[in-house]
Design a protein around this nucleic acid. Structure first.
Lengths: 147, 147
DNA sequence: CTCATTTCAGCAATACTGACATCC
DNA sequence: CGGATGTCAGTAATGCTGAAATGA
């Protein structure tokens, strides 16, 4: 669904540009991750666990922007791969206590590198300073829009 | 799937920020368009026709970033609504000649206004100058990434 | 009774693939 | 013949809803 010769009216609009740019970059990253058998949600979950762990599935889902119901299969997959350890939480028997395994930490570093490389390629028309500016502007949009 | 307290590693990455920002803005625009019974593809198609017309379905699809197989139902809908006129192309009997009707031009102006307002709301944390910067950076990303 | 957590079953919207008939 | 067009059927991936079972 990549666009060619989009109409001026759209090409000038931030909403259109955001959608196009996000599409391209997201696709590049997803393709590279697929190349090593991973998915963007894998990366997000491992990254979240590296930062805050142990952690329940629901909380992990919220921090990754994934629906709780979809997190089930994701965690299942990550535990199968030996990247996440799952044990019942003794303090609250509804929950799991999820944490990164050593293999999971290595996998996270691998995925970090893949993502960084893909991102670098997708954003290659921008200088380092411009990327910082872009990140800053986008952060403002994302965090400033709690109406 | 809106994120809360995303991990630092992700929050700092342009790819993640792009996806988040695009999600928010796109959703705001889509919701407002739904409020007047429209879809973002309706707006794109009308805008493309206003700029280049007459036009075949396949060409319209390419310029709107819509698959040509999905354009079938879209054009069907727009002609039902009386916003697009569809007639066989005498020069190439595989094609249609699509064009905007006067009602379609009015509808386009209405949707332009809705989209502009939604966009303005979604981007309200940014000043006018910052929006221009954002548009400029995103344009560079989108048009510069023909590797 | 309330609310949260894990889980599942299913739905809706989107993007895409593959095929076919038609025509340049 | 190769290639484009309009069309349809079907698929895949994604995000979401609703509900059940369990427990705080």
């Amino acid at each position: 669904m990549l666009t060619e010769d989009a109409p001026e009216r759209l090409r000038a609009q931030p909403a259109w540009l955001l959608a196009q740019a996000s599409r391209r970059v997201t696709r590049t990253v997803a393709d590279r991750l697929a190349g090593v058998g991973a998915h963007r949600t894998h990366h997000a979950a491992l990254a979240a666990l590296a930062e805050t762990s142990p952690c329940s599935q629901a909380s992990l889902a919220r921090r990754c922007g994934v629906d709780r119901s979809d997190m089930v299969a994701l965690v299942e997959r990550l535990t199968e791969d030996g990247h996440v350890a799952r044990e019942p939480d003794p303090d609250d028997r509804r929950r799991y206590r999820l944490s990164l395994t050593p293999a999971g930490e290595r996998r996270l570093r691998e995925l970090d590198a893949v993502v960084a490389a893909a991102q670098g390629d997708a954003l290659h028309p921008l200088s380092a300073a411009e990327r910082d500016w872009l990140a800053h502007l986008l952060t403002t949009v994302v965090h400033g829009s709690r109406r």
